[in-house]
Amino acid sequence: MSTTPRVAMVAGETSGDLLAGLLLDGLQAQWPGLVGQGIGGPQMARRGFEPWWASERLAVHGYSWEVLRRLREILGIRKQLRARLLADKPDVFIGVDAPDFNLGLEADLRAAGIKTVHFVCPSIWAWRAKRVEKIRRAADHVLCIFPFEPELLARHGIAATYVGHPLANVIPLVPDRAAARAQLGLAPGDEALAILPGSRSAEIQYIAPPFFKAAALIKQARPAIKMIVPAVPALHDRIVQVARECGVEQALTVVPGQSHTVLAACDCTLIASGTATLEAALFKRPMVIGYHMHPISWRLMRRKQLQPWVGLPNILCGDFVVPELIQDAATPQALCGAVLQWLRAGTERPEALEALERRFTALHHELQRDTSRLAADAIQKILAV
């Protein structure tokens, strides 16, 4: 395509916004002046993206009443967006993650002759394998962030390209821990725990309380420890409120954003399952993965789970390289105990930390590709057909 294409995009939640922003870098290098439109967040807006709705409007958690409570609003947004795109067709629609929202929309747009790309293969290898049929109907092409995914999709007749994981290029292979610690005001000898209870309001509701109660126990065991919570700005006040309710408001330092700085600086992280766990792995940090959701949501999810692991670092390594404490196992006592084991390893078992760092470094190399360029090249070929 010689002229700059018209691109529509939808990214849901914080992680999707980050991935979409990096994709826009590649598209704009290919087509200077390209401006996307649709649903996005601040990372996309920084690249000139025109958001018709904010990506946070799509952020939901779980499967039961939590989603149903927001369903009318979300379906209304999708209906309006579909009508707008069908009335004024873009050259390509790119759905970034958010498969529950994007795949149905992509199928309708593709049926109307619009090229469709799905960025981030839904985790059919981990759960909900039947979703592969929906992907086949929805996407002309899938941009995969994990190396084993294109072959899996090819078995089902779905065209795909491995583009690497964008975060593997954003996060340095050897992070500057000293600079990150100085930026946070940590002294050279300070022991620091990063606490990341999630980036969605429902995650703060279900995950922050056991995390913060575990933090209180950790503080009792190691009074000098510094505990830092990088908060999504929109959830800052809610996080502070939960910390107050758990009696740890004074023990925690809540900072706006800066999750990468906090992960680079910490000695260990207590972290909610999700993309952030991969970020922690790329920063080569020992971690304890925890997660908790509404009981009905948990029963539905567990029924569809295909692998023994939940956390991305464990899934990608094919082993329990870091502990996972999920649902009923995510008690404050258990979370505290797992964190203290990592903290003690620094003096008692340094070889365990060294082995983990080697494992995560190998993973970093495997995921490191020129993602922006590879994704833009794949989209250019789709448009040329």
Score class of each variant (00 low, 15 high):
residue 186 L to H: 03
residue 239 I to M: 14
residue 149 E to I: 10
residue 305 Q to P: 01
residue 129 A to Q: 13
residue 320 F to D: 10
residue 225 I to H: 07
residue 258 Q to S: 06
residue 371 T to M: 11
residue 163 V to N: 01
residue 170 V to G: 00
residue 42 P to Y: 02
residue 32 P to N: 10
residue 51 P to T: 00
residue 131 R to T: 06
residue 140 D to P: 01
residue 292 H to V: 15
residue 6 R to D: 03
residue 188 P to M: 11
residue 289 I to A: 13
residue 265 A to N: 11
residue 312 L to R: 08
residue 40 G to V: 08
residue 55 S to P: 00
residue 34 L to W: 05
residue 127 W to L: 12
residue 241 Q to F: 06
residue 204 I to Y: 01
residue 252 L to D: 05
residue 175 P to T: 12
residue 235 L to C: 11
residue 184 L to M: 03
residue 63 Y to L: 15
residue 146 F to Q: 06
residue 106 E to M: 04
residue 141 H to G: 00
residue 359 R to F: 05
residue 126 A to H: 04
residue 262 V to F: 04
residue 321 V to Y: 12
residue 110 R to V: 08
residue 335 L to G: 09
residue 132 V to L: 05
residue 254 V to K: 05
residue 78 R to I: 05
residue 370 D to H: 08
residue 109 L to C: 09
residue 357 E to R: 15
residue 197 P to C: 08
residue 148 F to D: 11
residue 312 L to N: 06
residue 47 R to Q: 15
residue 6 R to I: 01
residue 375 A to P: 08
residue 162 Y to D: 03
residue 365 H to N: 11
residue 227 M to V: 07
residue 47 R to C: 04
residue 27 L to Y: 06
residue 205 Q to P: 00
residue 173 L to S: 14
residue 13 E to W: 03
residue 84 R to C: 08
residue 44 M to E: 06
residue 147 P to E: 11
residue 131 R to K: 04
residue 258 Q to I: 02
residue 349 R to E: 14
residue 381 K to Q: 15
residue 115 K to A: 14
residue 52 W to A: 04
residue 156 H to K: 11
residue 100 D to I: 01
residue 292 H to E: 05
residue 331 T to Y: 12
residue 73 E to R: 06
residue 90 P to D: 10
residue 191 E to H: 06
residue 283 F to A: 08
residue 296 I to D: 07
residue 369 R to Y: 02
residue 88 D to A: 15
residue 380 Q to N: 09
residue 254 V to T: 10
residue 161 T to D: 13
residue 280 A to N: 03
residue 158 I to F: 10
residue 42 P to F: 05
residue 47 R to E: 02
residue 252 L to T: 04
residue 270 L to S: 08
residue 295 P to Y: 11
residue 298 W to Y: 15
residue 237 D to F: 01
residue 115 K to F: 12
residue 106 E to A: 13
residue 362 A to L: 14
residue 3 T to I: 07
residue 382 I to T: 13
residue 306 L to A: 14
residue 71 L to F: 04
residue 163 V to G: 02
residue 275 T to A: 07
residue 222 R to F: 01
residue 12 G to W: 04
residue 300 L to Q: 06
residue 356 L to H: 07
residue 132 V to C: 01
residue 238 R to L: 15
residue 297 S to R: 05
residue 264 A to Q: 12
residue 155 R to Y: 02
residue 92 V to H: 08
residue 203 E to T: 04
residue 199 S to P: 03
residue 269 T to Q: 04
residue 342 W to S: 10
residue 16 G to R: 08
residue 162 Y to W: 14
residue 198 G to M: 10
residue 184 L to F: 12
residue 285 R to M: 12
residue 148 F to Y: 12
residue 181 R to F: 10
residue 142 V to R: 07
residue 357 E to A: 15
residue 283 F to M: 13
residue 294 H to N: 15
residue 206 Y to F: 15
residue 5 P to M: 09
residue 348 E to F: 00
residue 253 T to I: 09
